[in-house]
């Protein structure tokens, strides 16, 4: 079958898709977007997390056909522009939250969503929001640090914006 949807702002089409293929498979193997990861392919690890119509989902659990005419945003689409990183990406690199990095794409999407929703989440909120993303390298300490850092920076930028003024 043919599947058409928007990925990272661009209309994309995949042909000869077998009905059993997941959104993750189509992204990785047919659209040249291997950033979303295939650690468990059963919705347990969160490494394949993408935005589907603005909501984070495990793309391994979404049948490719379900993405028809919808909007997908992957880790490749988090940064605005070639040379820039999203603050959450920047914070992950800086804080040492990336070791092997296989969990990173999914964690980035989940953390990006959390910060967008809550602004400056508490530690308990961070832990709850990221509980569906397994990491085997870091023991999560540096991931906590990175999310706090990204949230604080975002708040700072917002804090400097005109609507907060007198």
């Amino acid at each position: 079958m043919r599947v058409t949807f928007t990925v990272n702002g661009e209309r994309r089409e995949a042909d000869d898709v077998w009905e059993g293929e997941s959104l993750l498979y189509v992204l990785r193997e047919r659209l040249g977007l291997p950033g979303s990861k295939n650690a468990c392919e059963q919705g347990e690890c969160g490494s394949c997390t993408v935005y589907l119509d603005g909501v984070p989902v495990c793309s391994c659990l979404v049948a490719a056909g379900q993405a028809q005419d919808r909007e997908v945003r992957t880790v490749e689409g988090l940064a605005e522009g070639e040379d820039r990183l999203d603050p959450v990406q920047e914070a992950f690199v800086e804080a040492g939250a990336v070791q092997c990095g296989f969990c990173t794409p999914g964690l980035l999407v989940a953390a990006h969503d959390l910060i967008a929703r809550t602004g400056q989440p508490s530690d308990a909120e961070i832990r709850e929001a990221l509980a569906g993303n397994l990491c085997r390298c870091t023991g999560y300490e540096k991931i906590m640090e990175a999310v706090r850092l990204a949230a604080a920076r975002r708040a700072e930028t917002r804090g400097g914006s005109p609507e907060v003024g007198p």
Binding site: P34, E76, L78, A79, L85, F92, V98, G101, T104, L108
Partner: peptide, 12 residues
Amino acid sequence: DGTLKVRGEFAY
């Protein structure tokens, strides 16, 4: 490899 990894461009 940090930037490649957070951009989803690191080749596993």
